[in-house]
Simulated scan of single mutants.
Amino acid sequence: MKKLSAVGSFTLLAIACLTIMVGCVIVPGLPSIAARLGVPDAASWLVTLPSLGVVLLGPLAARLIARAGLYRALLVGLFSYGLLGLAGSFLHGPGLVFTDRFLLGGATALVMAAGTGLLSSFFSGGQRLKMIALQGMSIELGGVLFLFVGGLLATLGWRWPFALYLFAWLFIAMLLLFVPQPPQEETINEAGKNSVPARSLRPVFVAALSSMVCFFTAVIVLPLHLHAQGFSEAETGYFLSFVSLVAVGAAWIMPRGVKRLGEYGTLYSAFAAYAIAHLLFATANSTLQLIAGAILMGCGFGLSVPLVNHMVVEHSPVNVRGKNLAGLSMAIFSGQFLSSFLALIPGSFSRIFTGAALIAVTAIFLLWVWQKRQKKIRVFS
């Protein structure tokens, strides 16, 4: 297997940051940005509409990956990501703005699926699990960095956060310079390893969708909740950056959790953390309680998202890995998109947080049922 240099690994890990950046860079300044773009009553859609783009354009992304290969598809995705991301700051009105955000989702699907597939093609076994964990850490470090910088840029002017999308073009140069194309023959020879029927990935997709519903409900609602409590836009950015920082640590210990608890046990822990975090947000009457919720929220993300990425990669033959990763992208961003509907629950913010906690508990139950079924199948097979 062809080796990837340290700089090449860093490049692919940095590219992974773009998946969370797509919505998060504008979150700290969301109210003012929405007003400037002419969509003041649909601010949450600016964050979640790219998710719909991933879901609906994901199959096209999978076809492009199959035809052009991981490397070329990633180049196309990065160029489109930078162009569409920056263009959003020069548009006005629901039609143009929402179309741009929707197409940006399609570019994100390409970046996410092709980037993860390319990274996994250079590693196997335990090393692959380690790299997927590092990818999860880099995603959250990107969240820390971009939320923090996005908050600072929002204080300079509402257009400035959009400039962060141009990092995608910097990553194009790094990709061409430091990441070789994986040999086609090695990709073919690895096909069939650790493969399982496609239906066995359904619980993984459900876990991914549920995780993102829980996480992005907090991302959408917390800025409004904190603003109502007197937090500034910069302080909101700091708070959300703290959540991402905790997720980095959780992603770091995720491989150890898998060794001790197994894949499903680790997912149970992640959703238990989500449930408690949302209940803390629902009843928060102090900053300390908010911080406790932030810690558990970060643990939920860091333990679940890198793990579902690893599970799809490990259980997919290479010849359909791009397709399955595109399916995972669709599941993850479906969760982001659905979170916008959860945020529409009438009443106080407490009801929304309680609803997200119920989703986390439901996810634990569904995963437990699937795990029991899989054990029965193994016993009788």
Score class of each variant (00 low, 15 high):
Gly151Ala: 13
Leu152His: 09
Ala154Cys: 04
Thr155Asn: 05
Leu156Ala: 12
Leu156Trp: 12
Gly157Val: 06
Gly157Cys: 07
Arg159Pro: 10
Arg159Asp: 05
Arg159Met: 06
Trp160Thr: 10
Pro161His: 05
Phe162Gln: 08
Ala163Asp: 00
Leu164Ser: 00
Leu164Ala: 02
Leu166Ile: 01
Leu166Tyr: 01
Phe167Asp: 02
Phe167Asn: 04
Ala168Asn: 09
Trp169Glu: 05
Leu170His: 01
Leu170Cys: 08
Phe171Lys: 04
Phe171Asp: 03
Ile172Tyr: 02
Ala173Cys: 07
Ala173Leu: 14
Met174Gly: 04
Leu175His: 05
Leu176Cys: 08
Leu177Gly: 07
Phe178Leu: 04
Phe178Val: 03
Val179Met: 08
Val179Gly: 03
Pro180Glu: 09
Pro180Phe: 14
Gln181Glu: 14
Pro183Phe: 10
Gln184Ser: 15
Glu185His: 14
Glu186Lys: 13
Ile188Glu: 15
Ile188Lys: 15
Ile188Phe: 11
Asn189Ile: 06
Asn189Gln: 15
Glu190Tyr: 10
Glu190Gly: 11
Ala191His: 08
Gly192Ile: 11
Ser195Glu: 13
Val196Arg: 14
Val196Lys: 10
Pro197Tyr: 04
Ala198Asp: 10
Arg199Ser: 07
Ser200Asn: 08
Ser200Arg: 13
Leu201Gly: 03
Leu201Glu: 00
Pro203Ala: 09
Phe205Tyr: 11
Phe205Val: 00
Val206Pro: 00
Ala207His: 02
Ala207Met: 05
Ala207Leu: 03
Ala208Leu: 05
Ser211His: 07
Ser211Arg: 02
Met212Cys: 03
Met212Arg: 02
Cys214Asp: 05
Phe215Ile: 03
Phe215Asn: 06
Thr217Phe: 10
Thr217Ile: 11
Val219Tyr: 09
Val219Thr: 10
Pro223Ser: 12
Pro223His: 11
Pro223Met: 13
Leu224Asn: 13
Leu224Met: 14
His225Gln: 15
Leu226His: 12
Gln229Thr: 09
